[in-house]
Simulated assay, not measured.
Amino acid sequence: MSVRVLVLYHSMYGHVETMAKAVAEGVTHAGGTPTLGRVPELMPEDAFRKAGGKTDQVGEIIEPASLADYDALIIGTPTRYGSMSGQMRNFLDQTGGLWQKGALVGKVGSAFASTATQHGGQETTLINVHVTLLHLGMVVVGLPYSFAGQTTLEEISGGSPYGATTIAGSKGERQPSRNELEGARFQGRHVTDIARRLSA
């Protein structure tokens, strides 16, 4: 059975988008069907461009009601002061109708993120997303230590048991590393495998 997985992200400069693509690759590798989607940008287009925002992103704009169409939801967000971005928060705040109907209860939820610095709130951001997923009744899945890159001491790297992460640099100058992308792919596979078991 093919598991439908929505990889839903918000990305300002493209770092989270790159991670989202890797997550989607992992979903495909596990035999799932990924959809790359993104939440609407709240910044005016002019301001977004002036701030250096990436305008040619691959994800299609997703409506909150469509979350019920998927077996699993994997959310990617940049960090804003230790929490998810305002764009992602705004989107999730529109899922009250799904919450009332219990439309996401028992489905799999997971998260990945980026921060500017190594200790810039990656884990608090992921846990913040997890709290929302739990309120929606979802089964929360992280990035287990069976992903060997989780314990690397060879390089500075994102990643935690709460989800895959990347460090973008204070000016967005650092792109996701090979290890970080492998963590994202692993998470995509892992979520898909669990969603398949729950759907059986």
Rank of each mutant, 00 (worst) to 15 (best):
S170F: 02
T166L: 09
G159Q: 09
E180P: 11
A195C: 09
A195I: 09
P34S: 08
I156M: 14
G32A: 01
L126D: 10
R189T: 11
K171S: 06
V140E: 03
I127A: 03
A103I: 04
E123L: 00
E45G: 12
T192H: 09
M138E: 03
E155R: 00
E41F: 04
G120H: 10
V129F: 01
V5F: 00
T117F: 05
P78E: 01
G172P: 13
E45C: 05
Y145C: 05
L134D: 04
P40M: 08
Y9C: 02
V108K: 05
Q122T: 06
G52N: 13
A65D: 15
L133G: 06
P64S: 10
N90A: 15
S160A: 04
G82W: 04
I156W: 00
V108W: 02
S11F: 01
A65F: 00
V131D: 13
Y9N: 09
V16Q: 07
G97I: 12
L8D: 06
I74V: 15
M84Q: 14
R174M: 06
E154F: 00
A30N: 10
G142I: 01
E182C: 03
L198T: 09
P176N: 11
S2G: 10
T166Y: 00
P34W: 02
V140S: 05
F91A: 01
A65E: 15
K101Q: 15
L136G: 12
V39S: 03
G158Y: 02
E41A: 12
K54V: 11
A30W: 09
T124C: 03
T192C: 12
H29G: 11
K21A: 14
R197G: 07
G76T: 13
S114D: 01
F112P: 06
V23A: 08
R4H: 12
G14S: 12
L134W: 06
Y9K: 05
Q100I: 08
R49F: 00
A164V: 03
H15K: 12
V39G: 04
N128L: 00
Q94N: 13
F112H: 08
T152Q: 05
A164H: 02
S199Q: 13
P64R: 10
S170C: 06
I61P: 14
G86N: 12
L134E: 07
V27F: 07
L67M: 15
S199N: 14
T115G: 02
H15Q: 15
V27Y: 08
D71M: 09
F91H: 07
A68S: 15
G169Y: 07
I127R: 07
D93S: 13
H15A: 10
G53E: 05
K171N: 13
V108R: 05
G14N: 12
T79W: 00
S146E: 15
H130K: 03
A184Q: 01
P144V: 02
I156L: 11
T152F: 00
A103K: 06
A111H: 02
T125S: 04
F147K: 01
I194W: 06
A20G: 09
S146I: 00
Q150C: 05
H190S: 01
H119P: 07
T79R: 04
D56L: 02
V191T: 09
M19G: 10
L92C: 08
H130D: 11
E173P: 13
T33R: 09
